[in-house]
Design a protein around this nucleic acid. Structure first.
Lengths: 351, 351
DNA sequence: CTGAAAGCGCTTACAG
DNA sequence: CTGAAAGCGCTTACAG
């Protein structure tokens, strides 16, 4: 077998007629006082043989792999953009993200069920000595304990869109409070006074859903003659249309609905259509997330667009700062602004 | 600084009172003839100290990193599912994909422009000694030459959805011919006889677009009284609606349109709406890809659903087989079937 | 100006 | 039954 081997540094050194340590130094640009001619020869030889530094070796020696483990599935366009931001920022710094997502994309993965599987995933990354970890909320919730362990091994962790009462690591999220307030103001300004809120399951890992709804309720109630009522989907999030129907046919008779997510807004659309209500003349609807389908709904959905790419970039930046020591000490809570996108699903309330 | 170090094997060995080589063997389960008591003690100590094997070291020693470089951006839901399949299959085999996607997701990346950037990306993966590479067509086209170099270094490469005339590596794609034929048959069965095809830019990296169109044309022409004509977008793919309008207002007056992609189908929807034509009564439309938005269009778009997850799984399987030697020799062309999904955008031709 | 030695964290023959 | 030595592919003090 003459399997074409990847050339070694010693091959380059031999060819160029220098010692291995000389070759090593020269090729790293640490020219020292080596002869100009020698340097040229070594560099040329390396190029000719197609030699490339073995980063695994550097990693072992320096204790830094320049990789970051990323535990975020591309669950929807929001998370894909977050991932894109992470890749972008990390790439700039010559770090490489290593993303892990087992399981299929159709069901939002929950690890409460299979503790072992998640642990296996963390360990696969750790065994490859990633310098840090970025994860999404579901994961963080399931592995709170381990995140603290990681801190002890000085592996910084950043979690996105998750804000437990007592912080366990750095977090990056959307400025939910401000966004919810702006949405409330928009609906109030249009004259709506009976406003419903439809929320998702608000599990432990969805602190944003909770915050979004609560801030929204608070902001509506500032207007003394306005009333707000909230409905929530079941644990599995499977009864969206039923809940939306219930909400629309309740004696509350809302003229506007704020959906904590575009997913729920879509359920409201479906329920309204089935009930023969038309949007926005009978009912204003506003969502959150500006998911792929939002602009394509009929009518196009007004919604709040987060800045997932910025969120990803910020998460990566935080990780890098922890790694180079620029940031140290107490955990950071980064908040990225969101933009209210007005389309055609909101209109003035009937007088 | 008493930075909490990751424990080393020698720490475990010292604590357990055995030599490093003994600890190494025992912890890899190569119990040899070590005393049962000794084994238990070593394993317990490792667990207590939280020792984990450093995979970087194993990689250097074995020459295998158990990682596969993946150069596929999550450009749309199709590619996300391909990625998901790759992750799934690779994970099963205890391999880890390392995905690289610089650049933003809004523009399909082209590397024709920046040769250096793409090379840098390949090298970032190679420097980390990935065992193999999986890439998407755009990339493969731009780096044909390098793919051959890789083969020489015995780094297997699998390209998805790309089939040049002379193969340069293993490929996985959809059975375009059969799918196109089935679509043609569907439209002919509905009585359509003037059928248009709207195709994307058909660049070098879109061999599938070419194949899809050609096979479709051929399949329509089998029916002697039927006629097919094709239109194509410009190089940048930016004039979709114009081309669709042109097609619909041409003297050819097609009663059905096959769009090589759902993207183009959407353009046909937009053009038809602007012209006051209604789908499917005035015009049948069928797309390809079943992208996220297809089912949400009004009316829901009939289309062809590929099996991106299967494609991803197959690509990963091929890579694994090349790596373990199960497959060797000439390049493989794997073809995954596609399913025609009938929704409401196709109807019988007016009599 | 340049090289020999020790080391990174392990594993793999080889000796005893 | 167990350990000392050499090695994976490099880099980093240290000597000369």
């Amino acid at each position: 077998m003459n399997e074409p081997r990847v050339p070694r540094l010693k091959d380059v050194a031999a060819e160029a007629g220098v010692s291995v340590s000389a070759a090593s130094k020269i090729l790293r640009g640490d020219v020292g006082r080596f002869g100009e001619e020698t340097c040229r020869r070594v560099v040329a030889t390396a190029e000719r043989l197609g030699w490339r530094r073995n980063l695994l070796v550097s990693s072992i020696q320096s204790g830094r792999t320049m990789t970051v483990g990323v535990m975020i599935p591309p669950y929807d366009s929001f998370w894909v953009k977050v991932l894109s931001g992470i890749h972008h920022r990390l790439g700039e710094a010559d770090y490489l993200p290593i993303t892990i997502w087992q399981g299929d994309l159709d069901h939002m993965p929950h690890f409460e069920a299979d503790e072992q599987e998640g642990l296996r995933q963390i360990n696969r990354l750790l065994d490859r000595r990633v310098d840090a970890l970025i994860m999404w909320p579901t994961f963080a919730v399931a592995y709170r304990r381990h995140i603290s362990d990681l801190a002890e091994r000085s592996v910084p962790v950043v979690v996105i869109d998750y804000e437990p009462d007592e912080p366990i690591c750095d977090t990056v999220g959307t400025n939910e409070a401000l966004a919810a307030k702006t949405v409330a103001k928009h609906l109030l300004d249009l004259g709506h006074r009976r406003i419903a809120c439809i929320s998702s399951r608000e599990s432990q890992s969805q602190t944003w859903a909770l915050e979004r709804r609560e801030e929204f309720e608070r902001a509506v109630e500032v207007q003394s003659d306005a009333e707000v009522r909230s409905w929530r989907l079941n644990r599995e999030g499977t009864n969206g249309v039923e809940v939306a129907t219930e909400l629309l046919t309740s004696d509350f008779r809302p003229t506007a609905v704020f959906a904590v997510t575009d997913h729920e807004a879509r359920h409201v659309y479906d329920a309204a259509a089935a009930l023969g209500m038309s949007i926005p003349s009978d009912l204003s609807v506003i969502g959150f997330a500006d998911l792929d389908f939002a602009a394509g709904l009929a009518p196009p959905l007004s919604t709040v667009r987060q800045r997932p790419r910025e969120i990803g970039v910020e998460a990566a930046s935080l990780v890098l700062q922890r790694l180079d020591g620029t940031v140290s000490g107490p955990f950071t809570k980064a908040k990225i602004e969101a933009d209210v996108i007005l389309r055609e699903s909101t209109a003035p309330a009937d007088q």
